[in-house]
Structures are given as C-alpha cells and as structure tokens.
C-alpha cells in the first residue's frame, strides 16, 4: 500500500501536538513538584485537577485520534515511525522553553531521526 500524502500530513500534525502536550505535562509536573512536594504523584486520580496536566493529556488524546485516522492512509510500518518526529519537536521545545542545553548528541539525534523518518517516502 502506497502511503497517502494526507496520512503523512496528519501524522506530522500528530507529532507537533504530542510535543506541545509533552511540554505542558512537563510544566504541569514542575508546578506540581513546586506546589505540593513529591507526594502527590502517588495519587494519580487527583492529577486531572491540575490544568496544565489536563491540557497536556487532552492534546495527547487529540493527537492519538488523528494518528488512528492517519493509519487509514498507509501501512503501519511506514506511518507509525513518523511519530518519532515527536522526539525532535520535544527537544526543540525543551531547549526553547525549559532552557535545557543543546549538545552534539542531540544534534546527531535530530539528523538521524529526520533521515530515518524521511525513508517513509520510499
């Protein structure tokens, strides 16, 4: 089955949304740690009360729904690996918003993941 361009596009959006979701989850987790110490994460059912965590998870949900529809347009072994782009966006967002340092290993990661994902077109 040839991979449809729209499926690749939807999966691309999935990765962007997931990366933003991950950033919100991280910010929410940091807020949580600041506010209430480290005990709270044992009570998983209370986490939804924290808005950032809730929005982060919602974005995960939306991204997943998009992903399921993307699978209509191509073979799983080609569409699923596109999800690895999330690693790149997450890295970029963490460097920009969480001030995590960049280093040569991460640059190598971006290049390898990008090339690996681009093989989906073959």
């Amino acid at each position: 089955m040839k991979t449809a361009l729209w499926a690749i596009g939807i999966m691309f959006m999935n990765t962007l949304i997931t990366a933003v979701g991950a950033l919100l989850l991280k910010l929410g987790a940091m807020q949580l740690a600041q506010k209430e110490g480290k005990k709270e994460h044992k009570e998983i059912w209370k986490l939804w009360k924290h808005h950032l965590l809730f929005f982060g998870l919602s974005l995960y949900g939306i991204a997943s729904i998009l992903g399921i529809y993307a699978y209509k347009g191509g073979d799983l072994n080609k569409v699923f690996p596109i999800a690895a782009l999330t690693y790149i966006w997450t890295m970029v967002l963490s460097v920009k918003y969480l001030k995590e340092p960049m280093n040569p290993w991460k640059w190598a990661a971006i290049i390898f993941i990008a090339i690996g994902v681009s093989f989906v077109f073959f």
Partner: peptide, 13 residues
C-alpha cells in the same frame, strides 16, 4: 533502515 536510523537517533538523544 529508516527504523534503524530512528533507533540510533533516540540512542543519541
């Protein structure tokens, strides 16, 4: 091969 490169990339990350 693409999967292999992705795995390497994640390892580097």
């Amino acid at each position: 091969a693409g999967i292999f490169l992705i795995l390497l990339g994640i390892g580097f990350l």
